[in-house]
Design a protein around this nucleic acid. Structure first.
Ligand SMILES: [Mn+2]
Ligand SMILES: [Mn+2]
Ligand SMILES: [Zn+2]
Ligand SMILES: [Zn+2]
Lengths: 141, 141
DNA sequence: TACTAATTTGTAATAATTACAATTTGACAT
DNA sequence: ATGTCAAATTGTAATTATTACAAATTAGTA
């Protein structure tokens, strides 16, 4: 838990129990959960937690680069404790969002264009390996 | 207009005036408009148009690969007449979504992983060239 | 021209997010 | 340790994008 305290202090953010449990939750759940999922899960052991606080906390944590926000589904923001650049795969079948550890080699091109790039998001969508195998079995190999 | 008729016929989709004006609108506005923008603009000359029809039409056009859906902002779907793979840049200042004509070289890596990739989306976010120049001028060169 | 399934329309419901004001609290100074 | 206060939390209301649905209309076919 001291780890999360340090992360907040380094950014001069107030250390609150709410921010700590949210950070801990994100670190321990690499499923890229949405706001409501985080809220529902944490509420069980923290009944006084407000959903607005979850929204506020995620926003400020993201603004300070502690966590990352993913918008792969188009329906909701999903959050990621890993803040360094990586890509994601959304399975249209099971809904899982999987980390893809590649870097985007197109940043040079972006510099040419003259735009100032602050974020890079790479999203792939399709059917994940696990779901593909399930289909094969159902089809009778 | 015959061009759009042909696009629908090729996919065995019914040719309706609503679908035609939506396709025409998207082809003539490469701003990646959201559903409501398309609806508001078309309603002026088509007062009987329903927003639900815009939603339905965009959905079916996308499903058949005639148009592409972009979720770069996370809050809304934006639509693109260009359906071939390309990337996008969202300017956090002026809100413009700009086409970036690069291809993703990471598909090989995806094949290795065993996932079946159907869509690839590359999103960059930051400050666009135009807005960067405006800032420079304001700062006194 | 008549038929029918698909499409369009208007309205209502849902879901994610944001706004806001009252209460509480973490960080700092005494 | 206590007081102070700006910042954070909370609960509720408002907003926005999207989806659900049933009745009316219409495109494609015979
Ligand atoms: Mn991730
Ligand atoms: Mn585009
Ligand atoms: Zn899957
Ligand atoms: Zn700009």
């Amino acid at each position: 838990m001291e780890k999360y305290v340090k992360m907040l202090r380094e950014k001069n953010l107030k250390v609150t129990p709410q921010r700590l449990i949210i950070l801990k939750y994100l670190n321990e759940h690499s499923t890229h959960p949405a706001t409501d999922k985080i809220y529902q899960d944490l509420k069980i052991n923290n009944p006084s937690l407000s959903k607005t606080t979850v929204y506020n906390s995620l926003e400020i944590l993201e603004k300070h680069g502690i966590i990352q926000s993913i918008t792969i589904s188009g329906l909701e923001h999903r959050y990621d404790f890993r803040h360094e650049m990586h890509h994601h795969f959304l399975c249209k079948k099971c809904g899982r969002i999987i980390d893809i550890d590649v870097v985007c080699p197109n940043l040079g091109k972006m510099l040419e264009c003259g735009h100032n790039v602050e974020e890079v998001h790479g999203y792939f969508k399709g059917i994940c390996k696990k779901c593909m195998n399930k289909e094969k079995i159902k089809d009778g190999s």
